[in-house]
Every structure is written in C-alpha cells, then in structure tokens.
Amino acid sequence: MIASLGRSCPDCTGGQEAAVASHPWLAMISTASGGKWAPKCGGALIDSQHVLTAAHCLVDGGTSPAEVGVRLGEHDLRTSDEAVSLDYNVDRLLPHPGYNPSTHEGDLAVLTLAQRVQFRSNIQPSGLPTTAGSDAEYVGKMATVAGWGALAGVLPAPSRIL
C-alpha cells in the first residue's frame, strides 16, 4: 500500500525517515495544474517502463498523460544534493477498468513511461512475485509502507523526506 500525498492516512503515520536509496522502486507521481507541477501520489516502478499507482491519483481529476510526471530516485523534496533523481514523462495512463471512485474498489493504475528507465543503485524495479500463489503465502508476513507521508500524528502537510 502506498498512501497518496495530501490525503488522510491515519494508518500510515508514525514512520521514520528512510535511508537514501533504501526504496529504489518508489516513484513520486506529480501532476500539473494551472501550469504548476506538484507531488500528488506515490507509486512503484515495476519494470523498465511501467509504474503502478492508485487510480484515484489519475482519474479523480481527469488527468491526461501530458499532465502527469514521474520522478524516480527521489529522497528529500527539499534538496537536490542527497540523491540523483530522474524525471520521466508519461506516455499512457491505464486505470483499472473496474475502478469505482465512490468505494475505491479497483484503485489501481499503470503508467507507461515515455522512455525506458536506466537502472542504477537508487532506481530499481520492485520485487514482485514471479509465480502464481495464494493469499495464504502473505498472511502474517511483515509489509513495508513507503512514501512521503506524515511521520507522526496528523500534520498540516506531508513530509518532504522519504
């Protein structure tokens, strides 16, 4: 689960700052509005040209590919000297066909990047399962939530640090 910026996520607070490059698959999804770009959601790089994110990040505003950007390798949004990040244009948005904005059922989307990602130490795809299995494989297992969310309590603005 990756919580989107700007939305309340009480289950996603109480974290700690991640080490630089500790989540090399994490993508920052930004959208353009009125000529200004702003971080909106998180996502996961799943291969050299695709990012998995939440459909509500794209559909709830009628966003087009030209209004969506992906940053990979980011850590601290306040500075540019702690990690080398790369920005990518989006060629195609593919929200889940069963996405329901009222219930958030099917709240998944895949972004196709306009160019292939060149992997490096701080930019790598997520380790998705490669074989079919049952949900029972994951019951009782530890999961990690990563993103630019609140570190403690309810903050007026999301953290600028991963």
Rank of each mutant, 00 (worst) to 15 (best):
I29V: 15
W148G: 05
Q49D: 12
P95M: 13
K36Q: 14
D60H: 05
S121V: 13
G61Q: 14
C9L: 04
M28E: 07
E137W: 01
L128T: 01
Q115D: 12
H104W: 11
G14E: 00
G127C: 15
A21I: 02
K36F: 11
C57I: 08
Q118C: 04
D135M: 05
Q49T: 10
R120N: 13
T131Y: 00
V20C: 03
S85Q: 13
L77A: 09
E17H: 06
E105C: 02
A54C: 07
A19K: 09
A21P: 00
C41Q: 08
A21F: 02
L111F: 08
L45K: 05
L128R: 00
S64I: 03
V51H: 11
T130V: 07
R71K: 11
S22Y: 15
P65K: 08
D11C: 00
T130P: 00
L77W: 12
E137V: 05
A66V: 08
A27W: 01
G43Y: 06
Y88G: 06
P39Y: 11
T103E: 07
P125L: 10
L94G: 01
Y138M: 01
A19Y: 01
T79E: 10
A32D: 10
D81G: 05
N100A: 12
R92S: 12
I123G: 02
G61S: 14
T53C: 12
S30Q: 12
A54W: 01
T112H: 04
K40Q: 03
W148Q: 02
T130E: 06
R78S: 13
C12T: 12
E17M: 03
V68F: 03
A66R: 13
S85P: 02
G73Q: 02
E105N: 14
A55Y: 04
G34E: 10
P39C: 04
H104G: 00
